[in-house]
Amino acid sequence: MPTLDYYFATVSPYTYLAGTRLEEIAARHGLRIVYKPLDVVALFGRTGGVKPADRHESRKEYRLQELRRQSAKAGLPLNLRPAHWPTNPAPSSYAIIAAQNEGGGDLGGLVHGFTRACWAEERDIAEDAVIRDVLQANGFDPALAGRGLLAGADQYGRNLEDAVAAGAFGAPFYITEGDERFWGQDRLDDLALHLDGKL
């Protein structure tokens, strides 16, 4: 089965706005998604980007307008200034890595559950209770939150290195086996067209 590498950040509003459309595309095309959560701020620093807090005011203003518009297009509620952002993305990322290694639940739902918790539900995805709740809601053992820490930390660091080496520079970022790269949830339609052989 062909694979697609999916680089994303659990604190990224654009990862949230992707919803579960990637999983729908993958199901239609027989793709296996390799979920690669990473530290997107570190990725910016490695690839010439600027973290949101350090951007020019015009970019900050545009980002807020664009998030409002993209939220409306996606039909997903979004708080432009969530109570728990920025927060530490590592614990939720470790949980996703552990869940992928364990298998048996809904990984796409898990990723969306964490991003929704941050951007629509005013929950802190760095908190153990929130991580356990989102794991359980998506069919995973909540104890993975603790069991997967060491392996998760190691893989989390490797995901950043993999992203830099593969040419990813933001989140969400999708890379096919043929090295076609798509940046942003607003490129999912292009990804689908590419997989259909139309682009």
Rank of each mutant, 00 (worst) to 15 (best):
G30C: 09
L150I: 13
E121W: 07
L4P: 00
K198E: 13
L193T: 03
D141W: 14
R59I: 10
T176E: 09
G75C: 08
L17P: 03
T47P: 08
A18T: 01
D189C: 05
E122C: 00
K198P: 01
E180M: 07
L43Q: 04
W85N: 04
L188F: 05
Q100M: 13
A165Q: 13
D179M: 12
L78I: 08
K60Q: 15
M1L: 15
G178K: 11
D128F: 10
K60V: 13
S93Q: 12
W183K: 00
N101A: 15
Y6D: 02
K60W: 08
A165E: 13
L199H: 08
T87F: 05
E66H: 13
P86E: 05
I97H: 04
G48C: 11
D162R: 10
L110T: 08
I131S: 09
S93K: 11
G146M: 12
E23C: 04
A129R: 14
N101Y: 07
F182L: 10
G170I: 04
G148E: 10
E57K: 12
G75N: 07
D54K: 11
K198I: 12
L76H: 04
F44I: 06
P172S: 13
I33V: 15
G109F: 09
F140T: 01
P89R: 10
I96R: 04
E180D: 15
W119M: 00
V164I: 15
Q70V: 02
V11W: 02
T15D: 07
S92K: 06
Y7K: 02
A98Q: 03
R69V: 07
A137M: 11
G113E: 05
L78A: 01
R59M: 14
E102N: 11
L67V: 02
F140I: 05
V134N: 03
Y6W: 09
L67N: 03
P142D: 14
F182C: 03
K36N: 09
A143Q: 15
G113W: 05
G105V: 10
T47I: 12
T47Y: 12
A165P: 02
G146I: 11
T20F: 08
H112N: 13
A42D: 10
D196Y: 04
G148P: 11
R55V: 05
G105T: 08
A9Y: 02
R28E: 15
V50K: 09
A42G: 10
G167I: 11
R21N: 06
K198N: 07
Y174A: 01
I125E: 01
R55C: 06
G184L: 04
E24C: 01
A163R: 02
G48Y: 07
G139W: 14
N101I: 09
